[in-house]
């Protein structure tokens, strides 16, 4: 995941759940297990990711595994970006 994406995803996460403390979230923080993202916040997060990063997340990808932590969300975003604007690898 690119650093730019990492920051955009963190921003989107904090907009979806304003109670998130961004200074305490690292790549592998278990977002679902720690109650930092629930199902409705995931719906909001998807909207945020789509509008800020230009990705299109299909329903088939709206699975808990893809929202476990920032790394998983980053991989999801990478898969769902239009191919011609794929981000550079970290």
């Amino acid at each position: 995941m690119s650093t730019a994406h990492h920051l955009s995803i963190l921003d989107a996460l904090c907009r979806a759940n304003p109670a998130c403390d961004r200074t305490r979230i690292i790549e592998t923080t278990p977002l679902l297990d720690e109650g930092l993202l629930d199902s409705l916040q995931i719906v909001t997060l998807i909207g945020e990711l789509e509008s800020s990063l230009g990705c299109q997340i299909p329903l088939d990808e709206v699975l808990p595994d893809n929202f476990q932590h920032l790394t998983a969300i980053g991989a999801l975003v990478d898969r769902c970006l239009p191919t011609n604007s794929a981000p550079s690898a970290t």
Binding site: S39, L40, I42, V43, I46, L59, D60, V62, L63, P64, F67
Partner: peptide, 10 residues
């Protein structure tokens, strides 16, 4: 698919 369901419903 509770997440996808919510995505569809909302």
């Amino acid at each position: 698919y509770p997440l996808a369901f919510q995505m569809m419903a909302h």
